[in-house]
Amino acid sequence: MSIRLQTCTACGTHQYPERDLCRACLRDELVRTENDGQGRLIAATTLHRSLEPDTALPLRIGAVALDAGVRVIAFLGRGVQPGDRVVLHATADAEQHQVFTAEKDPADA
């Protein structure tokens, strides 16, 4: 399993959310690269209210710091707690944006 991250071929910086130029060196040499999605869950919340009436509540989301040096908001798999090593899995939404879920890293048992 892996996710795709926008990466600058000039300086190697990864970025998320996607931008139009490299956030660090501002060059126009971006490609999408495969990434193992590994990181750490920094913080979590359980949502009880949503602005969209069809959101299934309660719903857990979290802030993940990827080893690649980017920060991502993700849905949380069962039992994942802040401080845990996690792996992000991606599905695509209707506009082909990646939607991430953070699961406990099986290698970190």
Binding site: L47, L51, I61, I73, V99
Partner: peptide
């Protein structure tokens, strides 16, 4: 990158 995660 935020709104799709529960629209909170």
């Amino acid at each position: 990158a935020v709104y799709p995660y529960g629209a909170a």
